Simulated assay, not measured.
Amino acid sequence: MLDFLVTMIKIRSARIEDAAALQAIYKPYVEDTAITFEYDAPTVEEFAARIGGTLEKYPYLVIERAGAATGSDENSTEILGYCYAGVFKGRAAYNRSVETSIYVKLGEHGKGYGRALYSELNRELKSRGILNAYACIASPKPGSTRLDNSSQKFHEKLGYTLVGTFHDCAYKFGQWYNMIWMEKMLGEHKD
């Protein structure tokens, strides 16, 4: 008998019921890295509220792998990552700008999931009239542990450019970290 694996990747809008899977992706970033400056991982309930709040105005996307090896549940899926947009600044003049965030499940990096998520997020943002995307990224200093510059490199590959550095602005795991802002123009700026 032939044993094979069928895999399909799908990007879709996040749902409140995805909260446990998304929290499970995010939690190791909080507990083991300085990629996020949160000290405590949000609960599943808190994560559900974050998803719901974001979806009121902005896109929140997940990428999932569906597939089945012979003899397993053909309807099973696994969420591999997520991304979303949110308020850049709370003034009306900034309504064409957003802050973006992305997290890919540890062990799944380098497979194109982040690029696919951001491509779809950018398409969705452009369809909503968003012109500027900003990413706030933790940035290592010499000797930093629990953080490297892979997020900056990832964003650079996707067309983001560095626009500013905040020095020694975050303290986690007994170390000071920098934070950088990167931007990407999604559309033409017209009067």
Rank of each mutant, 00 (worst) to 15 (best):
81 G>Y: 00
187 G>S: 11
36 T>P: 10
127 S>Y: 08
54 T>L: 04
165 T>Q: 14
157 K>V: 07
183 E>W: 02
17 E>L: 03
65 R>P: 00
13 S>E: 14
38 E>F: 04
63 I>K: 00
97 S>N: 12
26 Y>P: 05
7 T>W: 02
184 K>H: 05
59 P>C: 06
158 L>W: 06
45 E>I: 07
106 L>S: 11
4 F>P: 00
43 T>I: 05
165 T>I: 15
71 G>Q: 09
11 I>R: 05
56 E>S: 10
169 C>E: 05
157 K>Q: 15
94 Y>D: 06
42 P>V: 09
23 Q>T: 03
32 D>P: 00
174 G>K: 07
73 D>S: 06
83 C>K: 10
52 G>F: 03
4 F>D: 04
7 T>I: 14
166 F>S: 13
85 A>N: 08
54 T>A: 09
173 F>A: 07
20 A>Q: 13
127 S>V: 04
179 M>Q: 15
146 R>A: 12
111 K>Q: 15
169 C>S: 14
176 W>E: 07
55 L>K: 13
73 D>L: 12
165 T>P: 03
98 V>R: 08
33 T>V: 09
97 S>I: 07
66 A>W: 09
30 V>Q: 04
19 A>Y: 03
107 G>Y: 05
117 L>V: 01
33 T>G: 05
173 F>Y: 13
18 D>V: 04
89 K>I: 07
138 A>H: 09
75 N>D: 11
62 V>T: 10
146 R>L: 10
155 H>S: 08
7 T>G: 02
35 I>L: 07
145 T>G: 04
107 G>P: 09
111 K>P: 00
57 K>N: 13
43 T>N: 03
156 E>I: 04
151 S>D: 09
93 A>P: 01
59 P>M: 08
150 S>Q: 12
89 K>T: 06
15 R>G: 02
6 V>R: 12
191 D>L: 12
152 Q>T: 10
72 S>C: 06
50 R>L: 01
36 T>K: 04
70 T>M: 10
41 A>P: 09
123 R>H: 14
2 L>G: 04
122 N>E: 15
12 R>F: 01
125 L>C: 09
135 A>K: 01
152 Q>M: 14
140 P>H: 10
9 I>Y: 08
191 D>S: 13
107 G>N: 11
9 I>N: 00
74 E>C: 05
162 L>K: 12
161 T>M: 10
157 K>Y: 06
160 Y>V: 06
172 K>W: 12
17 E>R: 10
27 K>D: 00
163 V>T: 14
6 V>K: 13
37 F>E: 07
182 M>G: 07
52 G>E: 15
83 C>L: 05
